[in-house]
Design a protein around this nucleic acid. Sequence first.
DNA 1: ATTGAGACCTGTCGGC
DNA 2: TGCCGACAGGTCTCAA
Length: 276
Amino acid sequence: MPELPEVEAVRRRIAPSMVHARIEAVDLRRPDLRRPFPRQFAKRLGGQTVVALTRRGKYLLALLSSGETLLMHLGMSGSFRVIRAARMPRVPRARDSHDHVVFHMSSGRSVVFNDPRRFGVMDLIRPGQLQHHPVLSALGPEPLSDDFDAAGLARACAGKRTSLKAALLDQRAVAGLGNIYASEALHVARLSPRRRASILATPGGAPREAAHRLAEAIRHVLLKAIARQARGRYGDERFLVYDREDELCSRKGCAGTIRRGAQGGRSTFSCPVCQR
DNA sequence: ATTGAGACCTGTCGGC
DNA sequence: TGCCGACAGGTCTCAA
């Protein structure tokens, strides 16, 4: 489920329990998620202090006192919750069968990773190997940083015969968008998700006006979503187009109706009237 | 090299 | 109520 704004919300929520705290123990309840946990995962984490908790695209990165980095991805159904560690639980706390990892922190909190579908990932990266890690090195620019702009987006899409929607889902073009915010950004930018990605660039690779609109729209929808997450609770979002099939387009002056289509097996929502 | 389809897993929801 | 298929906010791999 989680795209960049949700991952950022998770980061902010669990950081107070993890950062500057020591990992007293790790309770690993199965050998794998989407991939096996690294060898000695729990043992290597035990006793380490979390120096910082950062985010890159949809990945969470816990920087550890040893110089190693704990990399975490929520997949489709992953979530974290924080509980107060019971000193002497008379009755064992009910444990969800999908609670796969528990970090027992010296802050007196336990951070529990739950993931029914197990599409999540955890990995432990050796000191100095961050830049070389296969998943991180393949990530495009962070959309809310100065590394991201229309020119870079246009360059990434130049000559691509695939659709704009598919291009936005490709984490090499820009990191952190998923099925929801790709649809949302294209709506804000008034671009049809089916247009070819190559329309963002001139033959020479320079950004066209559409690239400027799209880059700006990406920032806009992500910033708005993060602000909303900071206030509301997770889950009751209202989107511009996502999951609004047959509803009226909310754009001022547009009388269109939101349609749902399929691209690469995933649903895409857009307004055929104002998105061209 | 790029692109699209299928695979990975479990839960939920709507229709019959 | 129960069963069954479709679908879910993400990647990864494999074959055109």
